[in-house]
Design a protein around this nucleic acid. Structure first.
Lengths: 194, 194
DNA sequence: ATTCTCATGTAATTGGTTACATGATTGC
DNA sequence: GCAATCATGTAACCAATTACATGAGAAT
């Protein structure tokens, strides 16, 4: 069994596997990518980099830009091994905190109009996520028809996951709209039973 | 603006809107239902019930079963108003921690075989979730074809959300399988570029 | 007898965000 | 000159899980 990596350590080792980075750059990459399913903040990243260095998984080199202090971190051989070991274990963490779902779950006591509003609110959460992710896709300047095309054009699984994010949130938004529409057209008898 | 409810307070007020419950019963209901998108543990529930009672949103009545102490909590009028006020605000929290996605995101450095394994692992997470949710649906003894039918048969949005959980995870599992299959059948040239 | 369920609670630990503090460099 | 960006870090606070502690009643 390999040593336990903290949640933030997993994100750090992974981002460093692409190229060496400063803590600031790690945060920037996370915010443009994994943030949608694996967040990390400065308050976690900087202390964790120190711990990973003590454990010998990363190595820091001072690389000031002019008078601006800066440390660039890269994976050591042990770090690369730890990343590969973690990547090879079956995934364990899968947690969701979805306030829109919770509100629909508790919608029984609301009026029919409010119930449908809650459902559309939940859909709007997913539509906004789609727009945010599409914005990122547009920035990198391609427009794949599907995930495999995204991977083949870019050579990176990061774009495959971006596609997954877009498509799954589109599916969710459509589910909400489809269900809201079906509820609106239910029999007036059902509508009255408030 | 209404007073801020803690994450666990939202779950508590919501579950009590169906019927009065002990802390133990609140936990049991959460574990059978909202746990999949909004978890809560004893360490949060019991202290939060005390805080909600101090704030006047819930009311506890001692109701021992034999020599077994037990407090049954119910919503006060203020509690019902606070729940309705929260339900009427647009949802804010939407967070995901998805280790399977993170591993696929970092799969670039793996061999083609490992890459497809990671993708299938991610799909397995969703398949297991589908099975768990279908088990709950089977326990309550109906088999709806869609979410609106689930709502119409039971009269409760809790079953609509259960359907959403099943269908969204099915979609995700199928996306992974579809993508894994497409990757397997890519050109050998792409396969070799390890 | 023993195990399971019902029942309440707390302490230790972990994980996380937010806000703050500081300061240099770059571009307008 | 000013704002944005690059850059590092910490303190306060909030949220959450896990494990522990305790004990009664029910079922086998």
């Amino acid at each position: 069994v390999s040593l336990e990596l903290s949640p933030t350590a997993k994100a750090i080792l992974g981002t460093l596997s692409f190229s060496p980075k400063s803590g600031y750059e790690i945060k920037a990459m996370v915010d443009r990518s994994t943030r949608f399913f694996w967040a990390a903040s400065y308050g976690q990243i900087y202390p964790e980099l120190k711990r990973l260095a003590e454990a010998g998984l990363v190595e820091g080199i001072d690389d000031p830009q002019g008078g601006r202090a800066r440390t660039v971190w890269s994976l050591t051989e042990e770090g690369r091994e730890a990343l590969h070991a973690w990547l090879s274990e079956p995934p364990a963490v899968f947690e969701i905190r979805h306030e829109g779902m919770l509100k629909v779950f508790f919608a029984d006591s609301l009026s029919p109009v409010e119930q449908i509003e809650r459902l559309r609110d939940m859909g709007a959460v997913h539509r906004r996520k789609v727009e945010a992710l599409r914005g990122i896709e547009a920035q990198v300047g391609h427009n794949p028809a599907n995930a495999v095309e995204a991977l083949e054009k870019t050579g990176s699984f990061t774009f495959l996951i971006l596609r997954y994010g877009i498509e799954s949130n589109e599916w969710a938004a459509e589910w909400c709209e489809r269900t809201a529409t079906a509820l609106e057209s239910r029999s007036p008898v059902a509508e009255r039973s408030r």
